[in-house]
Design a protein around this nucleic acid. Structure first.
Lengths: 229, 229
DNA sequence: TGACTTAGTGTCACTTTTACACTTATATTT
DNA sequence: AAATATAAGTGTAAAAGTGACACTAAGTCA
């Protein structure tokens, strides 16, 4: 079967910058390419967009197929259209940012996706195509958004502690934050619900567990509330 | 001549949300479609992306062809990929935001582009395709950016007064601002250079003219300075 | 020259941000 | 069981920033 058009058409792909956070450093999920071009090199998960699926659907489908990840936070990032970004032919790629919670990917790691691996930001290998540029754009976007939208919670388990949240912010923003001021501000929003549970994880005082209250955030947002850390 | 591929391919277009400000209300540049579909209806300027041009180039080319505008501020907005957004076939559109200074378009208005017209935001007609959605996305983006990046100057003439700048902010943000506080903050950045010139425009005290200092902004930005109004 | 119109200016109360040090709860070691 | 080590958790005061507010200045026109 073949498809014929009056003018030449480039191909359209999606690529995903997938962020994960395990409590230490921010990490990116990469896959090792099994086919040319750039066979054997590391790349962002992604692939061609079908003519009967939206861009978001294509991104979710590729993410599932290539990494096993499902039901993650996903948001369009930017569209990359340099003429020769793919050596084969003209390919325009719509890039996405995905944020995954540790809960999700530890289970997935065992299933398929043996050619997918998490890399700390400081140890990203050479990437195929213009994926390094896409990744950098994704990092910038994450940094920018983290301060003005409550998306950090997408990178933490459902139940998390304030020290975990703070470490996430420090890791992504690459800056040290004052513990007392951070807690004061975060709690002042009233968006965190303390649970009847604490996290014991070492020879020290256990930390209070919280969960984020998305409904309350929506309500506040409609009243003109601005999240900002 | 025809072009054949193994899998079906959608078409790729660019569309531009073009903002202008004449001192009163914020305006959008629309063109009246001369061909089906939506013939006779108003739409955002835009068109198909060639396989040998980048997305930015395509946006600039279409803007020039359809409205005569050249050398304007242009920035990618979002990519729209709903499956049936074009009734003919699958078309994905990369949307752009353009900001034009009154200097530019008053001269252009005379040349070609007789089917292009500026519409105040409050009087936008029904638009073709999903262009209303694209426009709304563009407005949101402009509002968001105006407060955190010095892009307002792209909508004003090279030489402008503080009352003009304030009216622009009030118009875009849809809010009244305190004159003294606005001036205090804007001038505190040291990004405006007062000129040896005043603007006389009525039976009242003339206003000091300023110009924006882009070089100084770059310098400050590198030192970690954050623009915010 | 008087009336009208918009440009331009300073202060004070209040809120927000920042800097900073000790106590508390647990696990481990002796 | 007591001592030790570790990270969690808490309040205050000084400084900076924000927001509210009313009059004078410089021009045009009648």
């Amino acid at each position: 079967m073949s498809f014929t058009y009056e003018y030449p058409r480039g191909a359209l792909t999606v690529d995903c910058v997938v962020f994960g956070f395990d409590g230490g450093e921010l990490k990116i999920l990469l896959i090792q390419r099994g086919v040319a071009p750039f066979k054997g090199e590391w790349a962002l998960p992604g692939g061609f967009v079908g003519t009967d699926e939206t861009l978001d659907e294509a991104a979710r489908r590729e993410l599932k197929e290539e990494t096993g990840l499902d039901n993650v936070f996903l948001e369009q990032l930017y569209t990359f259209g340099a003429v020769n970004r793919d050596p084969r032919e003209r390919v325009v790629s719509v890039a996405y940012v995905a944020l995954v919670q540790p809960d999700d990917y530890t289970t997935e790691a065992q299933t398929d996706a043996d050619d997918a691996r998490w890399f700390p930001l400081s140890e990203i290998p050479k990437l195929a195509f213009d994926h390094r540029e896409i990744l950098d754009t994704g990092i910038q976007r994450l940094r920018g958004k983290l301060r003005y939208e409550p998306i950090g919670f997408e990178l933490l388990p459902e139940k998390f502690t304030l020290p975990q949240l703070q470490k996430l912010y420090e890791s992504v923003l690459n800056a040290e934050l004052d513990k007392r001021n951070f807690r004061k501000k975060v709690l002042s929003f009233g968006l965190l619900i303390p649970l009847d549970e604490k996290l014991r994880e070492g020879p020290h005082r256990p930390a209070q567990l919280y969960r984020f209250d998305p409904a309350r955030y929506e309500a506040l947002k409609n009243e003109g509330f601005l999240f900002e850390i």
